[in-house]
Simulated scan of single mutants.
Amino acid sequence: MIGFIGLGIMGSRMAENLLDKGYELIVYNRTKEKATRLLEKGATWAGSPKDVAHQAKIVFTMLTHPNAVEVIALGEDGFLHPLSKGAIWIDCSTVPPSFTRAMAKEAEQRGIRFLDAPVSGSKIPAEKGELIFFVGGKQEDVEEVRPLLNAMGKAIYHLGANGTGTAMKLVVNLLLAESMAAFAEAVTLGEALDLNKETVVNTLLNNPSAAPFLQGKKEKIIRNDFATEFPLEHMQKDLQLISQAAYENNVSLPLVNAAKELYGLAKQYGFHQKDFSAIYQFLSHKHQ
C-alpha cells in the first residue's frame, strides 16, 4: 500500500497517476473534499497522517510549506513515529535544503529511509505524468521507488545526498520566477511603446533569449486568462525560500530579492491565487 499526503493541484494529480497505474493508495488531506475523485477511483481514505502510516510502507508528501511538512510528519497525529522501520518517506514538497536534511535526520533516527524528490512542472504535466523529479538520497532507495516516480514523471535526476533534490528545485524555480518577470516586463514595455501585444509576444518567443516554458504561458498573456497552473503565491513563497537558502550559504542574490518583492506586491493586490504568469497582468496594470 502506498500512502499519499497532500492533495492540492499537484498532489491530487500525482496520486491519480499512481492509481491509474494500478497501485493501491491510502490518502490523506486536511480537507477531505479534495480526495473525492481519488476515492471514487478506489483510493482508501485515512482519517489522519498516523492512519496512513499504519497501512503504508511508502509514504509520499506533497505540501506547501515546511511547517506543514513538519506537523504532518512529527505532530501529534504525525505519520513518522508509527511508520514501520525500513519504510520509505518521499517528500515532494518545495522546502529549504536545510529543512530537508533535518527531516532526513528525524527519519533516520526512527529507522525510516528518506528521499527528497521535489518536482519541476505544474498542473498539466502533473495530469499527464510528465513531471521531472529532482531526487536526493541513497541510490538503492531511489531504485526501489523508481517505478513509482516513473508513473508520475518523465525524468528522474538523482543528484546526490539528502538535500540535493530540494537544492536543485530552488535553483530551477529561481530561474523560472525571474524569467517570467523579465518576459512580463518586456511585453509591458512593448505595449507602452504602442506595439501590438500579440506581435510582441510572438516575436519574443521566437527569439533565442526566451525560455522554452514561456510558450506555455503565451495564450494566458495574450488572452489575459490566468487560470491557475502554478499559483503566484507559491512562487512568492519559493522566492522566500531561495532568499533564505542564499542567506544561510552566504550568497548575495539581489535579483531574487527584487523578484520576491515584486511577486509579494502582486500577492498583496489580490493575484495570489492566479497563475504566476499573472505577474504580467500586475505589471501592465490590466487589473485596474
Results as ranks from 00 to 15, higher is better:
I2W: 05
F4I: 05
I5C: 08
L19N: 06
L19A: 05
K34L: 15
L38C: 13
E40V: 11
G42L: 09
T44R: 14
P49A: 07
P49N: 06
K50Y: 09
A53C: 07
Q55W: 11
Q55G: 09
A56H: 05
K57R: 12
F60G: 06
T61G: 02
T61I: 13
T64N: 14
P66I: 03
I72N: 03
G75R: 03
G78L: 06
L80P: 04
W89Q: 01
I90H: 00
D91T: 03
C92T: 11
S98V: 14
S98N: 11
E106I: 08
A107Y: 00
Q109T: 13
G111Q: 02
G111I: 01
L115W: 00
D116M: 04
E130M: 08
I132L: 06
F133N: 00
F134M: 00
E140G: 07
E143G: 02
V145A: 00
R146G: 01
K154S: 08
A155N: 09
A161E: 04
N162A: 09
T164L: 01
V171A: 14
S179E: 10
A186G: 03
V187E: 01
E191G: 01
A192M: 10
E198C: 06
E198L: 10
V201G: 05
V201P: 02
N202D: 15
N202R: 11
N206E: 13
Q215P: 10
I221G: 01
F226A: 06
A227N: 10
E229N: 15
P231I: 05
E233N: 15
M235H: 14
Q236D: 12
A245E: 10
E248P: 02
N249H: 12
S252R: 13
S252C: 11
V256W: 04
A259W: 08
K260Q: 15
E261H: 13
